[in-house]
Design a protein around this nucleic acid. Structure first.
Length: 551
RNA sequence: GUUCCCAUCGUCUAGAGGCCUAGGACACCAGGUUUUCAUCCUGGUAACAGGGGUUCGAAUCCCCUUGGGAAUACCA
């Protein structure tokens, strides 16, 4: 059975890149009927917080990312990680290294194995040679080889790497004679930590080896050992480093597939050796492309606008976010985009994941959100809208629910994001800064007031006097009538137009903007039916009184 | 510096040597429906980064260049 895990460190808000990793892991697990595990990597005690964990859990819950079995807290494993490091030390797979600041404290460093004969993921790729800068020393010690080589541009380039990278190393002096053979001294170096240093060298040669593995997404990947360094696994305060903890826990949790961000491929080469040293089989790896922001730069935890929680706040539907995120770097291969959870689970496979980074496009997200919005059941939409309206402070719970549901029904088809219910103000409140005579547009908006669109107003009142005249006539006719249905409102407009010999529809725009403050909205007659006779007269009167002062 | 990765419309993508005159979606533009707006419908603009090979044939395979990105921590 496949076992995957999502292993975030709870050091802040989860961002979309993170959560997409979780989504792909989840999709993979559900598709293959495997397990999706959640491991909290909370070993960084200074930066890990309970709040961050809670927020993470909320986000996962919101997105329907249910995990199998209990949450695994990495901090609970610390003792085991330390033990493992000590065991590697005693087995010769690690050594302790003095702190650079000369204190007595020591770190435990993992030693890439010089003898790779039992490491399946290492292979020889041929003989390599470097021309050495004779003015600089070649130094050989337990912690690696240091030298300066002459590159193509004839520059002296400093290099330091693990001894394991230089199988069969030979160091040549300026006459071309071999002055050192690593093979003859390697056990001595490992045993006694002795160091060699040579001046005036001309060349080094060695058998190049590389670590390799087959990435489920990116194909076969490899890295030469002579570009790798031994790495710390236990800090000088004895706390374990990410690489150790991460690998150790993956073994403990029997993880079979590690699906994570592209930024981890370099780590993988290190981890391969750790799996070997810990006596475990290596799992399958898949590295997914990063999500980049609008500038094409990678998102980081510092990108304040890409937190999952923010999308929730802004009113995005979790299904829409999930759907959109799953389409970043993956596609089902046909032309489907909007898919249900089960369709995605059904269609998902790692070999369809792209390896190029994908740019996050908020406009497309909005579009998909609108698609999901449109198919929301009326009662669900209503309660979402209601919650949103109350959240925005300008609506209290005493509001007539008949009025609210009428508005919601009328407006539903044009809402792409639930937070757009903020645009419904004119249905519920009769005040506007424009009426108050404070100069209108620049006045601070009262939270319980709707605003007028200046451009729309100017446009509708382009022929000011005749428009005001027409509206006055409309009001005269309107007052005399009673309205049983939306069609009655409609005919009151049409009749006025006839009376004034105006083209049909000519009154719509002025009337709309006077009544709602905006040039766009739902069907005018329906809008009027919701507002009702009294409020309509009220608004018309107010606006006609002040309109001369506005322009 | 070094190592590694990546490269199709503005964006997300389809594309496994001939189904490619490069398909879809978003965005954009035009037209239609709706007496407004949105929805909806129809149509349109728009891409294989560049250069070399391999091949009868290349978006697809190889090489080089260019451009992006990552890693190179006692962060995770």
């Amino acid at each position: 059975m496949n076992i995957v895990r999502f292993a975030p460190s709870p050091t802040g808000n989860v961002h979309i890149g993170n959560i997409r990793t979780a989504i792909f892991n989840w999709l993979f697990a559900r598709h293959t009927k495997g397990q999706f595990l959640l491991r909290i990597e909370d070993t960084d005690k200074e930066r890990s917080t309970k709040e961050a964990i809670d927020r993470l859990l909320e986000c996962m819950d919101w997105l329907g990312l249910d995990h199998d079995s209990d949450i695994f807290y990495q901090s609970s494993q610390e003792e085991l990680h330390i033990k493992a490091a000590m065991k590697m030390l005693s087995h010769g797979n690690a050594y302790s290294s003095k702190n650079s600041d000369n204190s007595d404290k020591k770190t435990i460093v993992f030693k890439l194995p010089y003898d790779c004969s039992t490491v399946k993921n290492v292979r020889e790729v041929g003989v390599a040679e470097f021309n050495i800068d004779p003015g600089k020393p070649v130094r050989i010690a337990l912690d690696g080889l240091k030298f300066f080589y002459i590159n193509e541009k004839k520059k002296s380039v400093e290099t330091a790497a693990s001894l394991a990278g230089f199988k069969g190393l030979k160091v040549y002096d300026e006459n071309g004679s071999v002055v050192f053979e690593l093979e003859k001294h390697i056990s001595e170096i490992h045993k006694s930590d002795c160091a060699f240093s040579f001046e005036n060298c001309s060349k080094i040669s060695f058998i190049r080896r590389e670590v390799f593995y087959k990435d489920l997404i990116k194909g076969e990947l490899a890295k030469p050992l002579d570009t790798m360094k031994d790495f710390v696994i236990l800090r000088s305060d004895s706390s374990p480093i990410f690489h150790l903890s991460n690998v150790y826990d993956d073994i403990t949790q029997k993880v079979t597939h590690i699906i994570r961000g592209d930024d981890h491929v370099e780590n993988t080469y290190k981890h391969l050796f750790l799996f070997w040293a810990l006596g475990a089989d290596i799992p399958n790896y898949g590295h997914m492309p990063m999500i980049v922001n609008h500038q094409g730069k990678p998102y980081s935890k510092r990108d304040g606008d890409a937190f999952v929680g923010d999308f929730r706040e802004k009113g995005y539907l979790s299904d829409a976010l999930f759907n959109y995120l799953s389409l970043l770097g993956w596609s089902p291969g046909d032309n489907r985009e909007k898919m249900t959870r089960s369709e995605m689970v059904e269609a998902f496979s790692l070999d369809r994941v792209k390896s190029a980074p994908a740019q996050f496009d908020i406009v497309k997200l909005l579009n998909i959100n609108g698609l999901y919005m449109a198919e929301l059941q009326d009662d669900i939409f209503l309660s979402l809208a209601r919650t949103e309206a109350e959240k925005q402070l300008w609506l209290d719970s005493s509001l007539d629910s008949k009025l609210f549901s009428d508005v919601a029904e009328l407006m539903k088809s044009r809402v792409k994001l639930i937070s757009q219910v903020a645009d419904w103000k004119y249905f519920f409140f009769d005040e506007s800064p424009l009426f108050s005579g404070t100069g209108g547009y620049t006045a601070e908006l009262n939270s319980k007031a709707f605003s007028y669109d200046e451009k729309g107003l100017k446009k509708a009142f382009k022929e000011k006097d005749s428009t005001i005249g027409a509206l006055s006539e409309f009001m005269r006719i309107f007052r005399q009538r009673s309205f049983a249905c939306a069609a009655c409102y409609e005919s009151s407009i049409r009749d006025t137009e006839k009376e004034l010999s105006l083209q049909e529809g000519k009154l719509n725009q002025p009337l709309r903007i006077v009544l709602t403050g905006t040039p766009s909205g739902a069907d005018l007659a329906n809008t009027m039916a919701i507002l009702g006779k009294d409020r309509i007269i009220n608004r018309l009167e107010k606006l006609l009184t002040i309109i001369n002062g506005v322009f």
